[in-house]
């Protein structure tokens, strides 16, 4: 394991932002480890290097707690993609994205792409209770985790007992509207950038619903910047020995994790 990870140079940077308890760590964990488990509140930020085919994508899983607010702009520096995460059962978590996290993205690349992601969709939508991907084997675990994941929702909403759905506080339209405001904040033209329908996701880290599609879509969109960056590096006189080695590896879709 250490031999594999060493010397790898990240091609692009992706950052997960969002209020605490929306499930940023769980989303990433679902994608990389194919599992959903009880996590503890992240301290500071955690850095991961994800191998996606021949490319290395660095992912920053940041803490949503206000305590670590000061570090946010450091994590976002030079980011090529930012996932703004909220909890579909918690309106405040969407509000926080705009109030607290949007300004952190000022240090990101000017061509950074943004995704607005509503997690915990399994709590409000029946469709999200079924995993979209076929390789999920831990349905047995969902019974116990149902209780776990149901609790970090605002006490105002009805408590979910297995099977009972929670009230959805944030609709897809709300997320689309936020996406529009983000583009305006970034002074980006809505027509020339990626459409909101493509960049607003509803996911469930618990069931795996839409999680792969979120990350894979983003990675696909990042491909041009990865290639551009690699080209820039190739133009430089430095010879990257690492290149010969990694180019041998075929792009096996997400099978490397």
């Amino acid at each position: 394991m250490p031999e594999v990870s060493k010397l790898k140079k990240p091609d692009v940077k992706l950052v997960l932002l969002g209020d605490m308890n929306v499930g940023k760590t769980s989303l990433l964990h679902r994608y990389t480890e194919r599992k959903f488990k009880d996590t503890v509140s992240t301290v500071g930020g955690a850095f991961f290097l994800k191998q996606w085919g021949p490319y290395n994508i660095s992912i920053w899983d940041t803490a949503g707690r206000e305590q670590f607010h000061g570090l946010g702009s450091m994590y976002c520096r030079g980011a090529a993609a930012i996932i703004l995460t909220y909890d579909v059962t918690n309106w405040q978590s969407l509000v926080e994205l705009e109030e607290r996290f949007l300004s952190l993205t000022d240090t990101a690349n000017h061509d950074c792409i943004y995704a607005v992601v509503g997690n915990k969709a399994d709590l409000t939508d029946l469709t999200a209770q079924l995993p979209q991907t076929s390789d999920l084997g831990d349905q047995t675990k969902s019974e116990e985790s149902q209780v776990l994941s149901a609790c970090p929702t605002p006490p105002a909403s009805p408590v979910s007992i297995s099977g009972v759905l929670l009230r959805k506080q944030v609709t897809h339209d709300d997320a689309v509207a936020l996406y529009g405001r983000i583009l305006r904040y970034k002074c980006l033209d809505e027509k020339s950038t990626l459409p909101a329908e493509k960049m607003c996701f509803e996911t469930s880290a618990k069931t795996g619903y839409n999680v792969d599609s979120l990350f894979e879509t983003l990675f696909d969109l990042l491909l041009p910047s990865i290639l551009r960056k690699r080209n820039e590096n190739q133009e430089s006189p430095t010879v990257d020995l690492e290149d010969c080695r990694t180019s041998g590896g075929k792009r096996g879709k997400a099978s490397c994790c």
Binding site: T42, G45, F47
Partner: peptide, 17 residues
């Protein structure tokens, strides 16, 4: 204690004040 409490997701590299 901090290390013990933040060990849930152990594959990453943590950077925290």
């Amino acid at each position: 204690n901090l290390i013990g409490a933040s060990s849930a997701f152990q594959a990453g590299e943590i950077w925290t004040p």
